[in-house]
Design a protein around this nucleic acid. Sequence first.
DNA 1: TCCATACCGTACGCTACCGTACGGCGGTGA
DNA 2: TCACCGCCGTACGGTAGCGTACGGTATGGA
Lengths: 189, 189
Amino acid sequence: MTTPTRRLSRTDWAAAALAAIAESGMSAVAVEPLARRLATTKGSFYWHFANREALIEAALELWEQEHTEAVIARVEREVDPRQRLRLLLTSAIILAQEDLIDAAVLAGARHPLVAPVLARVTERRVDYLAQVFRQLGFPPAQARDRGLLAYTAYLGQTQLIQAGLSAVPSHGPGMRRYVDRILGILTNP
Amino acid sequence: MTTPTRRLSRTDWAAAALAAIAESGMSAVAVEPLARRLATTKGSFYWHFANREALIEAALELWEQEHTEAVIARVEREVDPRQRLRLLLTSAIILAQEDLIDAAVLAGARHPLVAPVLARVTERRVDYLAQVFRQLGFPPAQARDRGLLAYTAYLGQTQLIQAGLSAVPSHGPGMRRYVDRILGILTNP
DNA sequence: TCCATACCGTACGCTACCGTACGGCGGTGA
DNA sequence: TCACCGCCGTACGGTAGCGTACGGTATGGA
């Protein structure tokens, strides 16, 4: 995973912080515990970062890149907009189960450093969804409504899982049927 | 609100803790800050509670009662199931905007004391919604699906608001039309 | 009136974490 | 080989909150 060198980079710290957020939330971004986890000391940390805030910012920046821009870029390689939407939905469903980072960031929505990033990411994702619906032929206003609806469903789903009550088939043909049903509802004029 | 006496009860502390959760999340349930806020000292607190955990438990118990059982009891006074559903939806929409406690508890879903309470509350709410749909004439399995769908929409909505992007008319005739639309979708066979 | 009981104030020790100061080590270029 | 620089280890002081010990006060019932 990380290089076998014992010297750490700024990005190593940011990645560790992001992992800590996913596991235990914002409060887990603490310098000394992270240092223990990375088998180093605060001396390393304060060389790469001015303070704890700077680390949180770096971690959230990483999240924004990897969990929004990168996903959009990958989906954009699909040519057919309907296939794009399907790919988006399936990856969202799978991610909502395995990957806890989105839920963890949502949970920290009130944190002053999280709020602006979260707002940007939410807007970006809804915008992209709306764009896909426009490419499917819906007029702008309707496209945005449907984008919002789709994203709300995603959020609600992650929260249900957080609450320990998953009700969505997360794999296999059950999921395929489920995705098709959702797709039908979302694209039905 | 509270009695003009300066002596506090166990419930006063629990209510203050719940308010603190709504404002600033689980980590805000801290003895000394709460004591300052109540214009008293830790001496009072440790008379009424064994420790911080006990306070969190009491606060969550209060939440469970006031934000689930009490709402259900009030809605139950409505005779027509379709009216019950409408009342439930409108109060949910209004609450999702004004009242931040539900979102704050969701945000603490990973906390060991929150998780079981949240699981119970979620189950209870979905069960109740399913019951209403059964009373509307849907067969049990379909009723549960629709209950889940409705609750997912509620959760997604609160999360969107948390992310600073509200897209739902929260009052007036706009909300009435919106509720009617939702009602139509949810009860359409 | 007097005392028991319920409740609160205060001082203390403990732990976890933040941030700083500074010394040291190891690799790289002259 | 030596000096320099990037990176890390360590020790320290400061703060915030938890929990405890114990003394103090007020209030209602005998």
